[in-house]
Amino acid sequence: MSRTIIATHMEALDHTTISRDCLRQYADAKGIRSEQLLIPSDGEMYYLPKISEREAYC
């Protein structure tokens, strides 16, 4: 089973340490595909399928 990470709150003025572009470049260099690491733009939304509690812990 593959997992996906969503990087949120990127480039927030009060606590930014890395830009979206920098994170994507780093992930690419480490072989992390864009399907594995989602980096949404400001205001971009993802709709995730609902999973059962059992699936969440397997």
Rank of each mutant, 00 (worst) to 15 (best):
L38P: 02
T16S: 10
R24A: 08
S2T: 05
I18D: 02
R3C: 05
T8I: 15
R33Q: 08
I18C: 11
D21E: 15
S34M: 06
E55I: 01
I39S: 04
D14E: 12
D28Q: 09
A27N: 03
L37P: 00
G43N: 10
E53R: 15
G31R: 06
L13R: 09
M45G: 01
A29F: 06
L37M: 12
Y47I: 03
T16N: 06
Q25C: 11
C22A: 15
E35Y: 15
G43M: 09
T4C: 07
I32M: 04
D42A: 11
S19L: 11
I51M: 14
E11M: 07
K30Y: 13
I5K: 01
Y57D: 06
L37S: 03
R33N: 05
R24W: 03
E53S: 11
A12T: 15
R3I: 05
K50G: 08
L37A: 02
D21K: 14
L48N: 01
E53N: 14
I51C: 08
C58F: 12
R33T: 08
Y46A: 02
Y57A: 03
R24I: 14
S2H: 12
I5R: 03
A12Y: 05
C58K: 14
Y26D: 07
Y57Q: 12
I18W: 06
R20A: 12
I39N: 01
S2L: 08
Y57P: 03
A7K: 00
D28I: 00
E53D: 13
M10P: 03
Y47L: 04
A7E: 02
K50N: 10
T17M: 12
S52A: 12
I39E: 00
S52D: 11
I32L: 10
A7N: 02
H9K: 12
C58W: 12
R24K: 15
D14K: 10
H15E: 10
D42F: 08
L48G: 02
E11V: 10
Y46M: 02
I51F: 10
R54F: 07
C22Q: 15
S52L: 10
A29N: 11
D21W: 09
